[in-house]
Design a protein around this nucleic acid. Structure first.
Lengths: 350, 350
DNA sequence: CTGAAAGCGCTAACAA
DNA sequence: TTGTTAGCGCTTTCAG
């Protein structure tokens, strides 16, 4: 029974793991006492100042580190939030991650980060993994199409905040921007500058809300200016092709629609792809074709020419996402908040 | 004693948490059995095929998810690795993170990601946090200067892989590139193209191995070409100033050393800063000043002009880092590996 | 072939 | 003012 005696064997003494009980034993007090003191509940529990000091000193002396896994199991909370983005190597997500990390840290939370690669099955798998790991909440860009699929993934009331994209009718917290009007503003700008034949370069899967809303903004702008939309001017390319730098589709698009004088691209990767495609075709920007893209990346100011962009308020998005999530985690009430933040159209040389 | 009866109370039935015991109870078998079967040890323990199926079906029916925190506590392993980078929003680190995520996932590991912001105290705090969370290993870019400081942070034999930078005399696993010869190659290129007065733009703190080695490579190249180094041609700027886009120091540097015809910058942020500074000074690249920078970022191909860079093999770095870490975690032997990978000098228009 | 029981390290009622 | 006890959910000897 008293196998604690084994600890004194002199053969192969590995550095003993410092736990609450070790401190308790050495001080001949109970684990409870130690736990209370070390969690700052010493005064609340009216424990002797002297005893408290003893405990604190001993803990420091032994360099005691509470095991957060044990605590997590006991308390049912891990102080961890799952962050699921489409692709952490995309500067847009990388920068948001940084701000989310910042605000989460203020609340004592860490981040388990993962990338869905825009694959639904992968996303589901990752969410399950996060849940198995007992994260206290999830912040994510979902690539799912059906709200039911998303709902099925999480227990009821699970603290969750979507950002960037939302699912229709899905009653989840969301923070993002008004993609329709942001795009509209950009396309308006094209039209006001005399462009009539405006291309729209976007990605599949097209049900993703950001992509769909941007497309909607494009259509609305055209209509409001009495320009009848031409389906040929819209091109959808596959996310994977772009990642693999396969731009032939874009080149063909440009070549078979020579009357197009401006192109709107729905994200930073597409803008780069477009840059490359036009370069290979020896077309000049903006002389031959103008470009405005969604998502501002620092280097777009220095590309040739500097790209006009729609900038999202990354810091605000991260901050809101964390703050909503924290409210949910703390109150466990069903908050259901939606935050729509302001974008900024930045006109440069393209 | 039989408080399990409470579970059948009809008041306020919250969805019961599905644990091993729930399955065991419903099936009237022991937790052991369930655990064994669900962990694929059913055959090894010679458990009835029929019983196994019963268990598996029931688990599926109840949608059982093993609690990884509990398992972690019991097994002393969390299947989590801590990834500590200087700044996740830096494309260099973001892309490496993606590859590390990829390889870690293959091994069933998740990543807790955090950014040190190049601050030593912050880094220490984050490492302690990771350790408290019982990560099974750490992959990091340390911003510490003293190997003892690093050693003090970790228990003996703790699975750790440094990447990008190493600490002198620190006997830790390391994966990175040969910064001396990579930089030398770049500076050689400058010299072979007729440049004599070559600036070197770097960051503080200068003890960081990558920065120091790049500087060394710069000096060596000059010496081997019989050019006596001029201290004035070396400028160190503060990481925080760069982050805050404060480039006046760089501009002053350029203006007070007008004979400089080429500048080597030690990372991608500095290259951007340099781009901006030169732009503000209305200096042309490469006519007035040539640039080569460490770290290739996709968009550098499209800047004006396209930047010449030294590209690091990001995928390989991530892959090696994970594989070394896994070896350490699995074998718990002291491996002490160093992997130096090949860089590639990419000459573009700058 | 299956189960009882111990215990990972911690917290929280409830006693004393 | 302090200690006892009972788990959180899981895995793993060790006995049947």
């Amino acid at each position: 029974m008293h196998n604690s005696l084994k600890r004194f064997s002199f053969v192969g003494v590995k550095k003993k793991k410092i736990t609450l009980s070790v401190i308790a034993e050495e001080l001949k007090v109970s684990k409870t006492l130690v736990s209370l003191v070390l969690n700052g509940k010493g005064d609340a529990s009216a424990i002797n100042k002297a005893t408290q000091e003893k405990v604190i000193n001993k803990a420091r002396e032994l360099n005691y580190k509470p095991n957060q896994v044990a605590r997590g199991l006991r308390m049912g909370t891990t102080k961890t939030i799952g962050l699921l983005v489409a692709d952490i190597s995309n500067p847009f997500f990388a920068r948001i991650t940084r701000t989310i990390e910042h605000y989460a840290e203020e609340e004592g939370f860490s981040l388990i980060v993962c990338s869905s690669d825009e694959e639904q099955e992968r996303e589901k798998r990752l969410v399950r993994m996060l849940l198995d790991r007992q994260v206290d909440g999830v912040i994510m860009t979902s690539t799912l199409s059906q709200p039911e699929d998303l709902d099925a993934l999480f227990p009821n009331q699970f603290p969750l905040v979507l950002f960037d994209r939302y699912l229709d009718q899905s009653k989840k917290n969301f923070v993002g921007v008004d993609n329709v009007s942001a795009t509209k503003e950009a396309v308006n700008h094209f039209i006001e500058n005399g462009h009539k034949n405006i291309g729209f370069l976007t990605l599949t899967p097209s049900y993703i809300s950001t992509l769909r809303d941007r497309r909607k903004g494009y259509m609305e702008s055209l209509k409001e200016h009495g320009i009848s939309p031409n389906e040929d001017y819209i091109i959808e390319v596959d996310y994977n092709l772009i990642k693999e730098k396969e731009y032939s589709q874009i080149k063909e698009f440009v070549q078979s629609n020579k009357e197009i004088s401006a192109i709107f691209t729905t994200n930073n990767h597409l803008a780069v792809a477009c840059l490359e495609a036009l370069k290979e075709l020896k077309l000049k920007i903006p002389e031959d074709i103008s470009i405005i893209t969604f998502d501002d990346v620092e280097l777009f100011q220095y590309t040739s020419p500097a790209l006009s962009t729609i900038a999202q308020p990354l810091a605000d998005i991260g901050q809101k996402a964390v703050s909503i999530l924290m409210d949910e985690i703390k109150s466990s009430a069903d908050i259901q908040k939606t935050e729509i933040l302001q974008t900024k159209l930045i006109i440069r040389e393209s």
